[in-house]
Design a protein around this nucleic acid. Structure first.
Ligand SMILES: [Mn+2]
Ligand SMILES: [Mn+2]
Ligand SMILES: [Zn+2]
Ligand SMILES: [Zn+2]
Lengths: 153, 153
DNA sequence: CGCTAAAAAGAAATCGTTTCCCTTTGGCAC
DNA sequence: GTGCCAAAGGGAAACGATTTCTTTTTAGCG
């Protein structure tokens, strides 16, 4: 249970995805896991610059995409259509998120009640649903209480 | 009930939004209303080029945004994060869409059952929900029956 | 008809994201 | 430990969807 053996388990996660465990990837996951708000690739890059003498923005984009494809991190659907990522700590399976458009915090919405809706849609349209997007946007309790929580996008 | 008085009602729609009724805007709405699939700004631009000697792409972007802000047309959330628009013919109020990722057809999902979910989210997180995104992606009945329906994105 | 603010054209800029190409490195074999 | 090689990373450049800017045209109104 020491930090050497635990190590956030990121090594195993990367191995499962067939990705080499590099320092950049490990620290990227560390930063995302410690940050409770969604980050843009450039913001993560700036954070990484404090930990590595050289770190390229393309590396950040590349790894973020790989990690998101592997399901290790989640993407945020943002009205400005830019990329944002978040490390979802929920152990459970399929679920959705409530994102604060003010401070960028992300909270889990454990149940997905959309399954029933899907059944009716299939019946009604005769189509086949391959995926769905459900995201709740708003202001989290912190931002409701304190406007200074606000984070610029 | 003749075509002069009916005129798709687009003039009134534009006036309500405080927008001048220009030929470009009228034809944009005509094209979108006749097309049952979502279009990119550039695709709409190409269609408009067949109707106007001069039509600028920035004009298309500008008007699409204005019309979408006014609620006259709808935007499609697409994984490639590009803009797509669709004229939603549903008279009813709040609802969501099933989009075919193969042929781009859009179908209405009249009820929004997410309200209950929202109530619980507010209770659970203590936040305030300002909007939500619900979209179902998949293959429509036409594409399931005939692969040739497919449209490139 | 004449005015004026809104709209549109066309060219150029923007900038988030991706591609390219060369160098470095992690993981494995020996 | 050493060597090998495919994967990963760096940096510069390209890309391309979207936006901005400036000038010209037009819709709407008296
Ligand atoms: Mn989650
Ligand atoms: Mn609709
Ligand atoms: Zn917040
Ligand atoms: Zn289809």
């Amino acid at each position: 249970m020491n930090s050497d053996t635990e190590n956030h388990g990121f090594g195993a996660v990367l191995k499962e995805l067939g990705l080499k465990e590099t320092p950049k990837r490990r620290v990227m996951l560390e930063i995302l896991a410690e940050e409770q708000r969604f980050l843009s690739p450039e913001e993560l890059w700036l954070a990484l610059k404090g930990r590595f003498k050289t770190i390229g923005l393309p590396t950040v984009y590349r790894n973020l995409e790989e990690l998101a494809n592997g399901g290790v991190i989640s993407t945020v659907i943002h009205p400005n259509r830019q990329l944002y990522y978040y490390f979802c700590t929920a152990e459970s399976g399929h679920h959705h998120h409530f994102i604060c458009t003010s401070c960028r915090r992300v909270e889990d919405i454990p149940e997905c009640t959309v399954a029933a809706m899907e059944g009716e849609i299939v019946t009604r349209t005769g189509g086949k649903i391959t995926s769905h997007i459900v995201q709740f946007n708003g202001f989290c309790r912190h931002c409701l209480a304190d406007p200074n929580e606000r984070t610029a996008i």
